[in-house]
Design a protein around this nucleic acid. Structure first.
Lengths: 169, 169
DNA sequence: GCCGACTGCTTGCATTTTGCCACCAGTCGG
DNA sequence: CCGACTGGTGGCAAAATGCAAGCAGTCGGC
């Protein structure tokens, strides 16, 4: 079942997991957007993924152990997708990508503020964020946030502050 | 000329630059392998990139400002590809990818030792490495290495030590 | 001055992947 | 029992990829 890897290099193998245009965006939306359902991901993404691609990628990510899928008890047709430990540990990579992209690419202010906050927070903030994700997706208890605000909420607040600011000129 | 980005999100824009199976591997070989010529990259890669794909990606990376191309004075047909500041600053991303891949994917020992050394070296080592790359590719003078050994040489030594060790059982 | 190896590509063609759009069967709330 | 919503499928055209061969110019050695 091991489908012939091109090489045993960690960077190459990482690319074989999420080196396409969509997989990492799905994981991004799940990590930062808290999305867990098919339609949430489908309609929530800024980039407009097609439903067949989304279905394909979700299946693939489950097969690769990056996600798990289970039934939603509240709705017989609903599926809940959860992050696994490997995908939770993508947070530092997301942070690095966000920092690099914000520096060198034509990002929009609203969408890059999260990346900046996360980058400036450094490893301690990433750890807190990953602990929150473990609680949310794996059921592992985490210490409550010191300031009573989750990291995701802090990122969201920063985002909303920018959006509000850009309208109230 | 701005070819309609899918969104202004830094992670999405980063993926638009190197979210394919080859671009990042080319940059990896240039950064860690010191490769500067077409054939060097073509034949040196573990993964076996095709020449038409390589030509396409090099052109694309030059257009995107991730590489520059100039003539080699020693051979009228040779081209020298150089990293630019944005691509040099991929080092932390490479390190994060390498660390993550080494932890979660079936890497081979020889090819992941570099990633481990780089990951354990942390930001100070990355900075030294980036300074070396700036000297090599941009002509910006760098302080000599404190132990007289370049970071790339250190990584290479670690690699060779593993290769030797796995043979002398 | 001539041959063989090397330079950075290009071309052609089969296969795979993507993107777009419509559609579906089951389910839930009102 | 209707209309909105659930996680997807299927069809089809367009684009990207993979593979192999080839190409014009250049260089080193003899």
């Amino acid at each position: 079942m091991t489908q012939a890897h091109r090489s045993g290099c960690p960077i190459n193998l990482s690319l074989e997991v999420f080196g396409d245009k969509w997989s990492l965006l799905i994981l991004r939306d799940m990590i930062f957007g808290g999305r867990r359902h098919f339609r949430e991901i489908l309609n929530g993404s800024q980039e407009g993924i097609a439903s067949n691609i989304l279905a394909n990628r979700l299946k693939r990510l489950v097969d690769l152990g990056m996600l798990t899928k289970r039934d939603d008890p509240t709705h017989k047709q609903k599926a809940i997708y959860s992050l696994t430990e490997p995908s939770i540990e993508l947070v530092p990579i997301m942070a690095a990508l966000g920092t690099w992209g914000s520096r060198w690419l034509p990002v929009t202010e609203e969408l890059s503020i999260r990346a900046r906050v996360l980058g400036e927070g450094g490893p301690e903030l990433w750890d807190r964020f990953m602990a929150e994700l473990r609680q949310e997706h794996l059921g592992i208890p985490a210490d409550p946030a010191p300031d009573g605000k989750t990291v995701r909420q802090s990122l969201q607040d920063a985002y909303l502050a920018v959006v509000a600011g850009s309208c109230t000129v």
